[in-house]
């Protein structure tokens, strides 16, 4: 704190002649002063992100022996990650679940965002707050509430039974990959709504008027103007949902059952019961790399399509 106050002082006392060449340079360069003010935040964040990551990378090349970790370089952990069929199946299932979840959430949220952006004219802010409010309540409670909805004795089963529509609880509701997808879609809905809404709101309405004047119908207007211009929001939404759901272990643990287990569950176990931190690190890093590749791929593909279109 001391640092930032004293650093911004030269600028404010410019009339007073002061210090050597460095001070002059500092006074002249806006960027330098900006970085000085940014430095406490930047230092804390960079240190807190880089040091643990570096340590995790190092650990992934070491070996766990009993309760100790032997610091000899080895690629064994990565070999295990890429040859063990269980991990391969988990990777594929995790990709399937979080990919489906991201796509489904974007698909169901798009019309909602569209409605608020184009058809709500009064109290827009209230609508936006209403759509995002559930997101702020405890994640754990939102997941738990789906257990209440889908459970063996849950709201759907007991509701249908007391209405006499079914005689036995539907068992497939809970503890399945589908339950995980529904729960995650609900939990991350705000991350789809907001970016899509913002990109729709930004669209210049006169473009739509021009298209209408030139004879485009509603469908053509949507496909040729609204949809392409809202793509940045759609891509952002896909990424914002895919990334965190790929690393979630709470939802699969609570509503997934054995068939709904995901990668993060095994990572969590490696740092808990299974007590193999190096293998856990290797798994976590592989996860990170796969997420980055998927996201980079998505961004690259959309850029290619955009360039082709122009």
């Amino acid at each position: 704190m001391v640092d930032a106050t004293s650093l911004s002082e030269p600028e404010l006392t410019e009339s007073r002649p002061r210090g050597g060449r460095l001070a002059t340079l500092f006074r002249r360069s806006e960027s330098l002063r900006g970085y000085a003010l940014l430095s406490p935040t930047l230092a804390v964040m960079a240190l807190a992100m880089c040091a643990p990551t570096a340590m995790m990378v190092a650990l992934s090349f070491w070996v766990q022996s009993g309760f100790d970790i032997t610091m000899t370089f080895t690629l064994d952990n990565y070999a295990k990650v890429f040859t063990n069929p269980i991990f391969e199946a988990l990777f594929l299932r995790t990709l399937m679940i979080s990919g489906t979840c991201a796509l489904a959430t974007v698909l169901i949220s798009y019309p909602m965002a569209y409605y608020v952006a184009f058809h709500v004219h009064r109290r827009k802010l209230a609508w936006v707050i209403m759509m995002t409010l559930p997101f702020w309540t405890s994640y754990l409670l939102r997941v738990f509430s789906w257990k209440v909805v889908l459970g063996y004795n849950g709201a759907i089963n007991s509701g249908l039974m007391s209405l006499g529509l079914i005689s036995e609880p539907l068992e497939f509701l809970l503890y399945s990959p589908e339950a995980v997808i529904i729960t995650l879609a609900h939990a991350w809905a705000a991350f789809a709504i907001l970016p899509i809404y913002v990109s729709l709101e930004k669209i210049d309405r006169s473009l739509l008027e021009a298209a209408a004047d030139l004879g485009d119908g509603a469908v053509a207007r949507f496909l040729r103007i609204t949809l392409p211009l809202s793509m940045p929001g759609v891509i952002a939404a896909l990424l914002l949902i895919f990334i965190p759901t790929f690393g979630d272990f709470v939802t699969p643990a609570l509503v997934g059952g054995p068939d709904g287990m995901m990668l993060a569950n095994i990572v969590q176990k490696m740092f808990g019961k299974l007590n193999d931190w190096p293998l856990g690190s290797a798994l976590a890093i592989s996860m990170m790399i796969i997420v980055s590749i998927m996201c980079g791929g998505l961004i690259w593909v959309t850029r290619q399509i955009k360039e082709r279109a122009i």
Binding site: A48, F249, A264, V267, F271, W277, S281, A284, M288
Partner: peptide, 12 residues
Amino acid sequence: PPIIMGVALLIL
């Protein structure tokens, strides 16, 4: 993903 940050901090 928060699990990765959590695990990395735990290791450090």
